[in-house]
Design a protein around this nucleic acid. Structure first.
Length: 919
RNA sequence: GGACGAUUAGCUCAGUUGGUUAGAGCGUCUCGUUUACACCGAGAAGGUCGAAGGUUCGAAUCCUUCAUCGUCCACCA
C-alpha cells in the first residue's frame, strides 16, 4: 500500500503489531468459514481440545494452539472451508476440587454452602476466570471461529449429555449396579480406572495365621472382609485344600472362608496364599465374580470401618489396622512382619489414597451387544474404526497402545458424587421404584438396574409423571439422582455436540466427521478413546479421520516443567519478549508427532532472529521495488516472472521445489520439516545468494515481488503476525486484503513453466562451489574482505563458458577485480610464488597474492587434498571392480559411481599438476 | 512382569521405501562497519551413526542379542 518503505524500522518489533493484527482478523469475520471468499466445497475441521475454564495458558497449550492454528491456516489458504472450533471445559472434578480448596482457605466446607450455594460459587469462580484463557488463546494468534465457541457445561452441551445418556440407557448400555469402584475418600466420589495414579511407598507385609494357612498382606484390616483365600491351581502345597471351606476368627466372630484356585496367584509371593476381599480389591472382585463369592463391605464411603468390622467399626482404615494388628499379636496370630515398597493408588486430582470398594453406581456396559449396531458392542465398535483405518493415529505406534487399552476396557463407571457437573438425568419414583439391594454374591448381574425397571426414569427433559404408576412430580414423587457424570462423559461428545447434534444441522453435515484431532498422547485414553466410543455409537460416524498426538514440552535438560523446579517457560512471557511468531516456530520446528520437545529461551531467541531476518529480507526487497518501478504491475508479484538470468532460473526452480515439498509435508502431518525447508530456502538461498546477486544484476522487480509474495504465503501458517504485517505493507490492496485468506501457491503451476530445472540448478551450484572456493582462499590467506583480488580459473568441458557467462556474479560475490580463464598447463605455469590455489571438480582456481607465499603450507594443503582425493578414488575403484556390484546393483547406481570416479580422477590430476608447479 | 520409544558432531536434533565422501541449528575458532539485517555476513574445525553379531554387491537405515536412558500398561496380595 505504502509507496515509500524508507521509514520501516531496521528491526521487526512485534509489540503493538500482534494485537492490532489479531483485532483486524477477528473483525474481518474470516475465522468463520461461512464468511470465506469463493466456493468452498471441501471442509477442514478441527475441534480445539477445550482447556479448563479456570486454567491459564501454559506451554503445552501454546503448542497445541500453534499446531492446530497452522493446520487451519494452511487449509484455509488451500481453499477449504476451514473451521477451528474453540471452547472451554468445565472440568467437573478439577474445578470442584479447586473451589473446595478456596473454601478451605476461608475455613469453610462445601457443606456450609449447601449444594446449590456451592454450585453458585463454582459458577461465579468460572465466570471470573474464563476470560483469561480466551484472551491467552488469542495472544497465540489462534484463528479459531469464536462465533461458534462452546463450553462443555452450557445449555446446548447439557442437552446433548442428557440425550446421550438416555439413548445409551434405552439401548441397555447404561446400568446401575453394585460393583467395585475406585473411591476417593477426600473427594467423596468414585474415580474411573484411568483417574487413579500410583505412588511408590514403603509398607509392611504382615504374615497372618489364617486358619490352616499363613497369608501375607499389606492391609490386615481388609481381611475382616475376606470370604475366600486363593492359591495357584498348580501349587502342590495346597492341592488338597482347593474347594474346601474353613472357618477363621479374627476376634469379631467366625468368617467362612472358601479355598479357590486362580492362575493369577503368584506362588512365589508371600506364602502363595492370598486372602480374597471381594469388596475391597479389584483383582479380588474379579476372582470373586468368577467364583460367585459372597462379599463383605468392611470399609465405607467415609473411609471408616463399617458395622461388619465389629469392634473396629467407626475407625478410619489406617487406625483400624494398628488396633487389629496389635490384637492379632496378642492372640499370637502374627507370624512375622516384613518391609516392602509397594505402589499406593492415589487420586489423580488430590493425591489422596484411593480406597477400592463396592458401591452402587452407574456404569456404561462396554461388552453388551447393541441391536441397532449389528449386534456389536461399544468396545468392538471402537476397535473396528481404528483397525479398518477409518481413524488413523499418528504416530502409528499409538494404535497398538489404543488396542491394548480398549481390548482390556472394563465397564466404565460414570457416576460421580461431586456436586459440580452434569446431573445424571435419572429420576426415581418414590411410589413404585424399589431399588435393588446389594447382591449377596459378587457378579450377580441380575441385580443390575436397567431400562424397564419400574419407577426408574431416564429422561432428557425433567419428567412430570412416572410412566409406570402415573404419579406426578407435583406431589413430590419424583426425585432426581443426586450424582453427576464423569467429566469425560461430556467431553466424549465434543466433536458433535459442538456442531448441533442431535439436530441434523448444516454444520453437522458439513463438518462432521472432523478431519483432525490434535492433542497430547497423555489423554489418549481419557479423551480420545471416549470420543471414539461415544461418537461411533451416537452419530454412526468416526469423530475424526486423523489423530495427531504431540508430545510433552520439557525444559532444555529434558525435565518436566514444574513450579518446584522453577523451570517453567510461560508462553505469554516469552511471546511478550520475543514475539508470538518466534514462540510458535520454536514449538513447531524440531517437534515430531509423539515425541517430547525440549524447549529453551535460546531456541526462541533464534527464531526471533529469524523473524527479523524475514523482516529485513522484505525491507530490502521493498526498498528495491521502490527505487525501481514503484506501484507498477511489476511490483505486485501476482504474475509468475520471466527469468532472465541463471540465478533467476535457479531461485525459481528452488522455490518451486520448496512449494511442492512444503505443501506435501503439511498435508501429511509433517510440520517440522517444512519449517526447516523454508528456513533453509529463505535464509541460506534467498538471502545469502539470490539477494546478493540481485544487487549486481538489477532489474528484479518482477522476480523479487513474486518471490516475496510467495514466501509470505508459505510462512504464514507458521508465523502469521510478521507475514501479515509485511503483506499489509507490501501487497495489500486495501485494509480488507488479508494474507490470512490469500491463495496458497499452486505447486505444479509454477514448476510447469520452468524448463531444464535440473540443468539450471547444476550450473548454479557450480558457481556457488567456485565462489566458496575463492572465499576459502581469501579466508585462509587472511585477505581483508575489502581488498579486491585477481583470480585465474582453468576449466574443463564447458565450465569456462559458464564462468564467463556468470562473470559479474562471481566477481561480486568473491570481491574480485577480475578473473582470467586459462588452459590447464597455463594455470600450472602461472602458479608461482604469487598464487594460492585450490580445486573443485571441473575447475581449478588460483588467486594472485601480494605478499610472500608460504610454499610449505600450501604444499601441505595440496598434498592433503590429493591424498583424500586418491583415497576416495580407491574406494570407488574397489566398488566398480567388484563383479558382484557390477552385476547386482541397479544401472543408475553404477553410472553415478562412474561419474563420481571420473570427477575425482580429474580433480586428482589437477592437484598433481599444481603440486608439480610448486616444485 | 508386558509393550513401546530413544541412543548420530560439545549441545539440540534431521536423515522418507538400504545406494551422500553422514547433514542442519546452537556453541567453538578465525576474519569482517561490503547501498536489507551485528537479532548480521564470510570461512573453518568437529562424527569408526550405543555395543557385538548377521543379511546384502552395498547398512546410520533391515534382522538378532545386549547395554544405558525414558514412557506407558498391568500389578505383588
Amino acid at each position: 500500500m505504502s509507496a515509500n518503505h524508507n521509514e520501516l524500522p531496521k528491526a521487526y518489533n512485534p509489540k503493538g503489531v500482534e494485537d492490532r493484527i489479531y483485532e483486524a482478523w477477528e473483525k474481518s469475520g474470516l475465522f468463520n468459514p461461512d464468511n470465506l471468499p469463493g466456493e468452498r466445497t471441501e471442509s477442514f475441521c478441527i475441534m480445539m481440545p477445550p482447556p479448563n475454564a479456570t486454567g491459564t495458558l501454559h506451554i503445552g497449550h501454546a503448542m497445541f494452539l500453534t499446531l492446530e492454528d497452522m493446520m487451519t491456516r494452511f487449509h484455509r489458504m488451500r481453499g477449504r472451508a476451514a473451521l477451528w472450533l474453540p471452547g472451554t471445559d468445565h472440568a467437573a472434578i478439577a474445578t470442584n476440587t479447586k473451589v473446595e480448596k478456596l473454601l478451605a482457605a476461608e475455613g469453610r466446607t462445601k457443606y456450609d454452602l449447601g449444594r446449590e450455594g456451592f454450585i453458585k460459587r463454582v459458577e461465579e469462580y468460572i465466570e471470573g476466570s474464563r476470560g483469561t484463557i480466551r484472551k491467552q488463546i488469542r495472544k497465540m494468534g489462534s484463528s479459531c471461529d469464536w462465533s461458534r465457541e462452546a463450553y462443555t457445561f452450557d445449555e446446548q452441551r447439557n442437552r446433548v449429555v442428557r440425550e446421550m445418556f438416555v439413548r445409551l440407557f434405552n439401548d441397555g448400555l447404561i446400568y446401575r449396579g453394585y460393583r467395585i469402584v475406585n473411591w476417593c475418600p477426600r473427594c467423596e466420589s468414585t474415580l474411573a480406572d484411568d483417574e487413579v495414579e500410583y505412588r511408590e511407598e514403603p509398607a509392611k507385609l504382615y504374615y497372618m495365621k489364617y486358619g490352616p494357612f499363613v497369608v501375607a498382606t499389606t492391609r490386615p484390616e481388609t481381611k475382616l472382609g475376606d470370604t475366600a483365600v486363593a492359591v495357584n491351581p498348580n501349587d502342590e502345597r495346597y492341592q488338597a485344600q482347593i474347594g474346601q471351606t474353613f472357618e477363621v476368627n479374627f476376634g469379631i466372630g467366625p468368617q467362612q472362608i472358601r479355598v479357590i484356585a486362580d492362575e493369577e496367584v503368584d506362588r512365589e509371593f508371600g506364602t502363595g496364599v492370598v486372602g480374597i476381599t471381594p469388596a475391597h480389591s479389584a483383582v479380588d472382585f474379579a476372582m470373586a465374580e468368577k467364583n460367585k463369592l459372597p462379599m463383605k463391605k468392611v470399609i465405607g464411603e467415609d473411609g471408616k470401618m463399617t458395622a461388619l468390622a465389629g469392634k473396629y467399626a467407626g475407625f478410619v482404615a489406617v487406625e483400624a489396622r494398628k488396633k487389629f494388628v496389635a490384637d492379632l499379636q496378642k492372640l499370637g496370630l502374627i507370624e512375622k512382619i516384613e518391609d516392602l515398597t509397594h505402589k499406593l493408588s492415589i487420586c489423580y486430582r488430590c493425591s489422596t489414597p484411593v480406597e477400592p470398594l463396592t458401591s452402587r453406581q452407574w456404569f456404561v456396559d462396554v461388552n453388551r451387544s447393541i441391536a441397532t449396531r449389528d449386534g456389536q458392542t461399544l468396545k468392538q465398535l471402537s476397535l473396528e474404526v481404528v483397525r479398518d483405518g477409518r481413524i488413523k493415529i499418528l504416530p502409528e505406534r499409538f494404535e497398538k497402545v489404543y488396542y491394548n487399552w480398549m481390548e482390556n476396557l472394563r465397564d466404565w463407571c460414570i457416576s460421580r458424587q461431586i456436586w459440580f457437573g452434569h446431573r445424571i438425568p435419572v429420576w426415581y419414583c418414590q411410589s413404585c421404584y424399589v431399588g435393588n439391594d446389594a447382591p449377596e454374591r459378587v457378579g450377580d448381574s441380575s441385580s443390575y438396574e436397567r431400562a424397564g425397571q419400574p419407577g426408574l426414569i431416564a429422561s432428557v427433559e425433567t419428567p412430570t409423571k412416572c410412566p409406570t404408576c402415573g404419579r406426578d412430580e407435583n406431589i413430590g414423587d419424583l426425585s432426581q439422582d443426586t450424582d453427576t457424570l464423569d467429566t469425560w462423559f461430556s467431553s466424549g461428545t465434543w466433536t458433535f455436540s459442538t456442531l448441533g447434534w442431535p439436530d441434523q444441522t448444516a454444520d453437522l453435515k458439513k463438518f462432521h466427521p472432523t478431519q483432525c484431532l490434535e492433542t497430547g498422547y497423555d489423554i489418549l485414553f481419557f479423551w480420545i478413546a471416549r470420543m471414539i466410543l461415544m461418537t461411533t455409537y451416537a452419530v454412526g460416524e468416526v469423530p475424526f479421520e486423523t489423530v495427531y498426538l504431540h508430545g510433552l514440552v520439557r525444559d532444555e535438560q529434558g525435565r518436566k516443567m514444574s513450579k518446584s523446579l522453577e523451570n517453567i517457560i510461560d508462553p505469554l512471557d516469552v511471546a511478550e519478549k520475543y514475539g508470538t511468531d518466534a514462540v510458535r516456530l520454536s514449538l513447531i520446528i524440531g517437534n515430531t508427532a509423539g515425541n517430547d520437545l525440549k524447549m529453551s529461551e535460546e531456541k526462541i531467541e533464534y527464531y526471533r532472529n529469524f523473524a527479523n531476518k524475514l523482516w529485513n529480507i522484505s525491507r530490502f526487497i521493498l526498498l528495491n521495488l521502490d527505487s525501481d518501478k514503484a506501484g507498477s504491475e511489476a511490483t505486485k508479484g501476482t504474475k509468475f516472472p520471466k527469468s532472465k538470468t541463471l540465478a533467476d532460473k535457479w531461485i525459481l526452480s528452488r522455490l518451486a521445489t520448496v512449494i511442492e515439498s512444503v505443501t506435501l509435508d503439511i498435508e501429511s502431518y509433517n510440520f517440522s520439516r517444512p519449517g526447516e525447508t523454508l528456513r533453509e530456502f529463505t535464509w541460506n538461498e534467498l538471502a545469502d545468494w539470490y539477494l546478493e546477486i540481485a544487487k549486481v544484476e538489477g532489474d528484479k522487480s518482477e522476480m523479487l515481488s513474486y518471490i516475496l509474495r510467495t514466501i509470505l504465503k508459505l510462512w504464514h501458517p507458521f508465523m502469521p503476525f510478521v507475514t501479515e504485517e509485511i503483506w499489509r505493507l507490501a501487497f495489500a490492496e486495501n485494509e480488507n486484503d488479508f494474507l490470512l485468506v490469500a491463495e496458497w501457491p499452486e505447486p505444479s503451476k509454477e514448476a510447469d513453466v520452468l524448463e531444464d530445472r535440473q540443468i539450471a540448478e547444476e550450473k548454479f551450484n557450480k558457481i556457488r562451489e567456485v565462489v566458496i572456493a575463492v572465499r576459502n582462499i581469501r579466508s585462509e590467506k587472511k585477505i581483508e574482505p575489502a581488498k579486491k583480488i585477481d583470480s585465474i580459473f582453468s576449466c574443463h568441458g564447458n565450465f569456462s563458458e559458464l564462468m564467463l557467462d556468470q562473470a559479474e556474479i562471481i566477481k561480486h560475490l568473491t570481491r574480485s577485480l577480475d578473473f582470467k580463464i586459462s588452459a590447464d598447463d597455463e594455470l600450472a605455469r602461472v602458479v608461482s610464488n604469487s598464487s594460492s590455489t585450490t580445486t573443485t571438480s571441473g575447475v581449478s582456481i588460483a588467486v594472485s597474492l601480494d605478499g610472500a607465499v608460504d610454499f610449505d603450507q600450501q604444499k601441505l594443503k595440496l598434498q592433503k587434498d590429493l591424498s583424500e582425493a586418491n583415497k576416495y578414488i580407491g574406494t570407488l575403484q574397489g566398488k566398480l571392480s567388484n563383479d558382484d556390484f557390477i552385476t547386482k546393483a541397479p544401472s543408475q547406481v553404477i553410472e553415478a559411481e562412474k561419474k563420481k570416479l571420473a570427477e575425482a580422477e580429474d580433480r586428482s590430476a589437477k592437484l598433481e599438476e599444481q603440486l608439480k608447479a610448486l616444485g
